[in-house]
Design a protein around this nucleic acid. Sequence first.
RNA 1: CGGGGCGUAGCGCAGUUCGGUAGCGCACACCGUUCGGGACGGUGGGGUCGGAGGUUCAAAUCCUCUCGCCCCGACCA
Length: 578
Amino acid sequence: MRHTKVFIPTLREDPADAEIVSHRLMMRAGLIRKVSAGIYTYLPIGRRVLSKIEKIVREEMDNAGALEVLLPALQPAELWQETDRWHQYGKELMRLQDRHDRDFCLGPTHEEVITDLVRGEIRSYRQLPVNLYQIQTKFRDEIRPRFGLMRGREFIMKDAYSFDENAEGAKESYHRMYDAYHRIFKRFGLHFRAVEADTGLIGGSSSHEFMVLANTGEEGVASCPGCNYAANVERAEAVLGTGSDQSEEECPALKRMETPDMKSVEAVSGFLNVSVAQLVKTLLFLADGRPVAVLVRGDHQVNEIKLKRFLKVTELILADADTVTKITGGPSGFSGPIGLKDVEIIGDCFVETMSDVVIGANEKDTHYLHASPERDFKVNHYEDIRDVVAGDPCPRCGQPIGIDRGIEVGHVFMLGTKYSEAMKATFLDQNGKKRFFEMGCYGIGVSRIMGAAIEQNHDDKGIIWPMPIAPFAIHVIPVQEKSDRVMMTAELIYGSLLQAGVETLLEDRKERVGVKFNDADLLGIPYQVIIGEKNLHESLVEIKNRRTGEKKKIEVEKVINYLIELLEDSPDESDFDF
RNA sequence: CGGGGCGUAGCGCAGUUCGGUAGCGCACACCGUUCGGGACGGUGGGGUCGGAGGUUCAAAUCCUCUCGCCCCGACCA
């Protein structure tokens, strides 16, 4: 396409309200515009990228035997009342009423609608399994939409739902989707990991998240370099490695120590000149209103999801300063397990292996030295309740694991019969017996992928698209638009590429080169063909690799074949050799 | 919902402390020069200062209410 015929309103300056890099670059490169918080318009280039993403998703879903449908975004309350999610979903559900005051919502997800469809149409095990998917706009009234496309109130998602006659079949469907997701993300040309994940509100027995790795990601991803273990840090098991035990040396007697104003772990460790790993911090929580003391090593973090699961509570709040004093008798910052009364004490497993530690004394400006679990204080339960950290042993093979940041772009769940039971969705099995469908659901955040791809692939000049989802493959840039020779060559190359089926953008604006080059780098089309008078005198044009910045001069007659070969050879970002 | 910040031209901002009738840069239109990394000169157009109410001779500026946006937190595919 010709630049002057496509609407690409680039911005010279960063928009004031865009914080993260993908948001800034999508605004600047003219991919999106904001309409309201968490609500965006996709401009032509943005829409092209979405189409690329959708095309790959469709091809792989179709290959995996899923069938595309389109479910309504506007959904009646009755369906949601059947599963009780009309209430459970809370304020995140966008609700509205029609002119007769009947309740509706804008779908944040489609389990209810799809289950309603299937229960009405599928009667026999002979019709199973079935997997239906759609690419559609979803609505979630987020507490706080943020990060541009990363957390919108309206966003585009591919969701698929599988229905099987039994658990084994459901497992098979799940694995088919899991494999399809691997192919999809590989084809996008993105670095990603599939990780074990928490099932959250959707429920079900098993689930994996697909994370695009980027250091701006919101999620922590623990993964093992030695085996294929990978998990969301929310869920990753923290295990004791060999050698984590302290020496058998006798621990000296407990000793009180003045620690004036030393409230934080770092302050105490600095003041006493001991490592933070020699401290045990005590955090007070209110678990459904009940006070609980939690012990973890000074440099470890309490994992509230694990703790919640262990305590089997729905609400877990870190106690405020007043509550701490009420529970422990001492000021916040000096809490410890010694002398705590009427409080359940949960210790992280690692604490059990420690001895001779520093702990708070539940008294202003005081800590204890040389404390040892069991000898000096009692712990009711030892449990894995902390976040894993880099270097922790892999729970499968024991090698030290690494922690990366990731952006969740896909999630697959085994749902079991949660929805089919709630909605009485049954079929007849071989014996003519009614059974509930075994379900699975599978989501891909289509619009979020666009943002995640940019988070992972950009530099200070702009976007660097992986070829498979780039809006165009080649950007043809004539330098001097007044030169007939330059313009004719540009038109020739542009025309030939189009004829060869290569998606090409021709820079045909009357702008200075600086503007053209800077906008080209901002747009991030993988290869730029730069046509200038100087090189043309020697019948050469220049090809610039946007990712590496590498430039190569090629003879005009050979450039089309050269580019076509280049595109065939480099389907993704990991393969950019000339 | 709690904490912090911001709404002035399409975009980025100054002006608000201390009231005096709105400005800068970019962008846009036209003319000329320039032209392989965001040019220069000239001319020109564009504003209910987020909205409502109030105080005042006079309000972008002070007061009250309200709407919107951004960031942190709790929460979440």
